[in-house]
Design a protein around this nucleic acid. Structure first.
Lengths: 196, 196, 196, 196
DNA sequence: GATGAATGAGTTTTCATTCAT
DNA sequence: GATGAATGAAAACTCATTCAT
């Protein structure tokens, strides 16, 4: 407890610096300085720069996946799901947007193909869980029969939209945009049941 | 006809190599070897590695934008538009998938912020053109009132979906997936007009 | 005492190698080898090859200027001055001739115009100090009225003569030559007061 | 006669460009452009960049030596010699100062040790010729007994002084400075004969 | 003879990683 | 355990020289 967890400090410093400069342009020196430790110390916790990067990405991506999973558990109707998702994505965008932009935008194939594979697998897991949820809704007649994977993909597009317009287009009305996307998707998923 | 256009050969080699390793891991040497020219020769055509990369990306991205624009011009109903888009995206995926994956996946901010800006501007242009088209359809009552930018974003997601499932998930039934996405989007855009 | 001052070792190696090959032909590699350190180590102490060269030159030139200044301080007659100068220049030629030949021979404009300017400024400072001394002697009637700057220039020619005949003509009777030059200069400065 | 001697044009272009940038920083390309010929053409006349440089230097240095020799031939007293020398050096400084600064300032050891040797040999030749002249004057009692080589060296310092103050100190009163130097040297060489 | 597109050897500099303290 | 001085492999880029036209 006296030491405020050196590994957390290093991880956090890495996050900031990798985000600012990208993988290749980031120097271990800068991370060490930002973390307030010696260069050598980092190597007590990781094997290499790549290892550090991978650990950082996995931590972040897992957090987002975790939020998605929680959102699913809480939601017993498609409308409730979109409500919670909207709320949670906005929360992430406001609290951690910068830190998590890797989740959506970085092509990691150049850094580590293993990481790339992990990302795809993680994405697949998310999509599977979403598919299960969608199947339930389809079974219950809440939504019409749609391709569950594609629907899951489109649901995840809500994250993409949010990050893109926040980071690259610097727009503030993200909530409005996400509402509009949910509107289209909801209609697309429910079809004319929406009228009933 | 005597010269088989050395610049085209270099550009093409650059495309292959950059795609395989990403910007930073790519060595000019390797591009030169693949193009069958000396290292120095590349510098007759570009100023730097970055310049080469930028030129390559712009060429590719412009091509995809061009296809999108053509698709819009040909299409006088939303259904026709999705038909043509499906056809054209499938064509690109079959002919140039590998070469064009940058269009969707690479985060270029680490390479050149100027390029990144160009990409965002290009994307905005595409979205504006799509928005105009969607406005027309809304005016004509072909689709219901939706947020045009968000709808445009979702239409472009068809490219993203195609590239993602082809490249990272190695799936072959891309056409089916795209059909399923178009199904959802079409319903989402038309609402219960779909019944009429 | 434990550390035999790595910077001194590098500076000394740089001196030898730059002298042997000139600025452009000198490779950092060779300096590193001669200093018995890794190439990277040099860059812990300087920013660039040019920086290393500039530091080396300034160190050497400053040393020679320092000797000149000391010589002036010690000397209360023109004859004493020439005596001391002769003695000190011979000392430098014997101990550091090779290391200091830059002082006289190198045209540095191609390397760094800033350095060139520093050299000219340094030279000017030396000449000003010499001029002050000569003025004193003129006031006291020790020497006749001469153009102080030109006289100062000629006094510095004693260094040039020494280095030239030692380095390029490999002559050993430097002392004799310097005596002869002083003889001419002294007569030139005193005119017929020499007879008195 | 139709072709205005391509070699002269190349040599002249080389002179300008080498002077502006120094040997290493000069590119053959730039010389070719300035001469208005193709790069390949230069290699019809010289074997290499070094060869071109050597030829240029020798041409220039020979010209200065030639002027010195002529001055000696014209002069039958030490005073006349200094008069003519003053006149001729001023002429060179006004017409060709820039072109000839190599003669005095460049350390050529880094470029070609052969050239360096040629320069030293040329310098020696000049000094020998000057020594012969000085011997004559000594024999005739025009000047007192001085070390002829050293005196010759000091006479050549008139060139050095001129180039230095013109090029590095940008001074305009070169003539005055040279007069002052000649004044000192003449007194130094004649001793109290000056009174006679 | 003249050209200039093509070449690739050669050099500076960076920075992840190590290891003596 | 923590450090940071030392390392050297690696890569972009330059430019003298060549040679097919």
């Amino acid at each position: 407890m006296t030491k405020p967890n050196k590994w957390q400090i290093i991880l956090s410093a890495a996050n900031e610096v990798f985000l600012e400069h990208g993988y290749e342009k980031t120097k271990m020196e800068e991370i060490a300085v930002k973390a307030g430790v010696g260069k050598g110390t980092i190597y007590e916790y990781v094997d290499s720069k790549e290892d550090l990067f991978v650990q950082m990405i996995k931590t972040n991506v897992s957090y987002v996946s975790h939020v998605l999973m929680e959102t699913i558990e809480q939601s017993h109707s498609i409308e409730a799901f979109f409500d919670h998702l909207l709320h949670n994505v906005l929360f992430i965008l406001n609290k951690h947007c910068e830190k998590l932009s890797f989740v959506v935008n970085e092509d990691l194939s150049g850094v580590s193909s293993q990481l790339q594979e992990w990302m795809v697998a993680n994405q697949e897991k998310n999509m599977n869980r979403l598919s299960v949820m969608l199947h339930e809704f389809m079974d219950r007649g809440e939504i019409r029969n749609v391709h569950p994977e594609v629907a899951a993909w489109l649901i995840q597009d809500i994250f993409r939209l949010g990050f893109y317009f926040r980071i690259f287009r610097k727009q503030d009305n993200i909530e409005e945009l996400m509402h509009a996307e949910i509107d289209i998707l909801l209609k697309g998923l429910k079809g004319c049941q929406a009228l009933r």
